[in-house]
Write a protein that binds this DNA or RNA. Structure first.
Lengths: 235, 235
DNA sequence: TATAATTTGTCCGTATGTATA
DNA sequence: TTATACATACGGACAAATTAT
């Protein structure tokens, strides 16, 4: 059962997406939302907080709650953890599996995933495509003690949906580290760039609620086409 | 007057920094904090929320509130908007001003800062150093209609502190966009790297509460030494 | 294994403060 | 100045997850 404030937040976001606030650029007031959804002020405020976090809404004390203008160039919002499939909505997402095997954890993996040496680990290396154009190169590791089974079919779809829907587990924390590096020959070929050109790297570490790491993923993006966005409120 | 939950959050963070929770890795319970600070449960929970956002604390339902292990390599936390000075604590921060002038906004600036053409704009180009070693190259623009005065002294210190303490204005939103690019000859020389090597770029757009942009800043970092971290809770 | 106690998560209601219009 | 609307803070009740018994 989904929490009420999350549910209401999603309802409001759907209304926003439908464009009903586009003209005024102003959402309903808290009191109006309270009546509309028959919830407490607390709940509405938590729902709005989520929209603020997602960079969608902007409450102004004494005035109202406004839409936040979208940025140009469509950078990847680091707050959006719903995966490529969701984020890229109307685009065609596919992937080519370059390698897939079960290996014992070496020192590097132990370090990255805080697991024991020789822990059985799925290694997945794939090229992800967007509208049939190379989009990013993934090197991903899954702790088999936590994710007991993976196969080609699962890998071809959304692994995160598999974890959520089939394993019934909840991903609670993701650390995302952004850096830059030079492209290897193989990576350059896959992305249609040249060796030693820059690459922008996103390293994701995914954890369950107690902080156990089930996945580490190193992704290489085309630096000419990819930016990452973090929106912050200091309030 | 600072909000109570922020104040309490800072007090708790100081206790964490002092190491008093290092042994158990477990903070006090909500009820214990309520007694200690004589505040409501709501206030304590908001204080803890801030610590969670900063990646410092990790509440576990039914169990307690735990310290979150620090990451290796000390990446720059994108949630930390307190500036270099705060973040790098015991290090020596300095800067070399490479250019500083008042210019009318051109089309590029208009686009980035959503201002009118020819708006008077301070342009600041500086090299920031950490322990006397080149750390990043900044190209920064300030809307003079919003930041009416800047001089060398202010620029040499923390501009953000000047805005907070002297102009008495509150920075409410910062959009941070991370990308990669190739270094220009000038940038490479300044950072001790070679032309066309990768650079990791952080573009900051800073806004006051109503969303008006007062600053756009393009920063070039040494890709060998700099990473950016985003910690996310899906809960 | 089952139950109770502990602890955080969600939700409600109310009152007051502060910024905006 | 007044009314509107969001921000802060308090209190209580119950649910859900974990831990101890």
């Amino acid at each position: 059962m989904e929490a009420k404030f999350k549910h209401v937040s999603n309802l409001i976001e759907k209304d926003i997406a439908s464009g009903i606030y586009d003209e005024t650029q102003k959402l309903l007031t808290e009191d109006e939302f309270i009546i509309k959804y028959k919830v407490s002020r607390n709940t509405i405020r938590r729902a709005i907080d989520l929209l603020v976090k997602r960079g969608v809404a902007l409450p102004v004390q004494g005035s109202g709650i406004y839409l936040r203008k979208k940025r140009l160039g469509q950078p990847i919002n680091l707050e959006n953890l719903r995966g490529l499939t969701y984020y890229l909505g109307d685009h065609n997402v596919s992937s080519v599996i370059l390698d897939f095997k079960l290996i014992p954890a070496d020192n590097k993996i132990v370090d990255l995933m805080h697991c024991e040496l020789d822990t059985p680990t799925y290694y997945v290396h794939r090229l992800r495509k967007l509208d049939n154009k190379p989009y990013c190169i993934e090197y991903s590791y899954y702790n088999k003690d936590l994710i007991p089974y993976l196969d080609n079919e699962i890998i071809n779809g959304s692994i995160y949906n598999y974890i959520r829907n089939d394993l019934k587990k909840t991903i609670n924390f993701i650390d995302e580290v952004i850096s830059a590096n030079v492209l290897t020959k193989e990576e350059a070929d896959l992305l249609g760039l040249k060796e030693n050109e820059p690459a922008i790297i996103c390293e994701n570490t995914s954890m369950f609620k107690t902080g156990t790491i089930f996945n580490y993923c190193y992704s290489v993006f085309n630096y000419k086409e990819t930016k990452f966005l973090k929106m912050t409120n200091t309030a």
